[in-house]
Design a protein around this nucleic acid. Structure first.
Lengths: 217, 217
DNA sequence: CCGCAAGTCATACCTTGGTTTGCTTGGAAG
DNA sequence: CTTCCAAGCAAACCAAGGTATGACTTGCGG
């Protein structure tokens, strides 16, 4: 209802409330799912095809996808692969009226959160969406942490990065100086700058921050 | 074939070669799968029921399970849950002649590696087993690393453990002394012992070793 | 050409980390 | 009751980490 309404007394859709994207070629089903979600206070936005979804300006909010497997144009499973190669890791709940086991297994192996058969029980869909949203929240917080560290690391000069790498390896200033062919004082200088720029006070904290960095890439 | 043979010139089954456990109530299927695996040099051991498998003394070797879903006594899916609660994390490949989508989805959500429909193509089974074995190898090496660190940590005295925890948090000796209500010298003493017992030379290494510890538990 | 950022070095000084030696205490195992 | 060990303290000492201050070079963009 309050899709584009002016400031109202109703609970405004906050920027971080989950948004569920639904793609199904059956308008009735689309509406049913949106209504179902709305009944538990979750905003849904429906599309008739994957192309429509890709064309739309989807806000960056926590959420998930509900896909019909059989779709006009790009099918659900192909779309899943496509999103993956685009680096979009939105959790996916599949739903379909015509499915066989290999199809569902393929989807699950590719990372789908759930795979429901129409007609499904309302509660099953809500449970699946819950699980998908939980997964996305966890992914997003993980991602946010990584990006924070990345932005800090981006302010480092090349030399500082080298020194940081050695510090994290546990090398002594003396050794670092030898490896890089510079004096120990200079190493201490870079090291100090690294600690400040990375906003840590101890080597332990630095190690942990850097860990999350190369853990994800 | 060479199930209990005396020492022979043939390639003896090495302790770390993979062992695939098959459970199916159809003797023909059991034999077929064992033969298929043998054709690519993988040892298989077959059972007619989950009870039989549980009763048997299965050697601790890298491997995976191939389970029929429909089994006498405990069914495949229940068995999966059961193993999980027993802490046995062997990758599972399901196979079945009678399956529906919800069943396969349930199995995949519970962590199954694959879910094949009989009759399956030989290559599909071999691919599934390959994936399962890869998963188990990775899990085992991860587990081995954790256990190594655990055994090192087991030699620590309670006090040393406390000190280690603080060191990993990046606290100074001074602060640790204050927190634990002891003198700074004593902290240094414990700290030195921790470094030796954990077989690390730098705080950075210590942090990494301890990380793997509470990452898995 | 000037200014600025990155990188380098030295000296000096202080803090923190780490080891050794020697001694004490309390509890558990023998 | 003795032995062993975790746990603790002190003094003294050396190594390593960390912070100025000041000064020099190089390369790049305005």
């Amino acid at each position: 209802m309050a899709q584009k309404a002016a400031p109202s007394p109703e609970p405004a859709p906050a920027k971080d409330d989950p948004l569920v994207l639904i793609v199904d070629d059956d308008a009735g089903m689309r509406e049913a799912v949106v209504d179902l979600l709305q009944s538990v206070g979750i905003e849904g936005r429906a599309f008739g095809s994957t192309a429509e979804l890709l064309a739309a300006a989807v806000p960056d909010r926590p959420g998930c996808l509900i896909l019909d497997v059989r779709l006009p144009g790009l099918g659900g499973l192909e779309f899943q692969t496509r999103l993956d190669s685009l680096g979009i890791a939105l959790p996916i709940v599949f739903m379909t009226g015509f499915a066989d086991v290999p199809m569902s297994v393929r989807a699950m192996k590719a990372g789908a959160t759930d795979f429901l058969i129409k007609p499904f029980r309302d509660q099953d869909m809500l449970d699946a969406v819950d699980a998908a949203l939980a997964r996305d929240r966890s992914r997003r917080s993980q991602r946010a942490a990584t990006m924070t560290v990345e932005s800090l690391a981006a302010t480092l000069t090349p030399r500082e990065r080298e020194v940081m790498a050695e510090v994290v390896k546990g090398r002594l200033n003396k050794q670092i100086a030898g490896d890089l062919g510079i004096s120990e004082v200079t190493v201490k200088l870079h090291r100090g700058k690294v600690m400040r720029k990375m906003q840590v006070r101890s080597v332990a904290d630095l190690v942990r921050k850097v860990e999350v960095l190369d853990h994800e890439e």
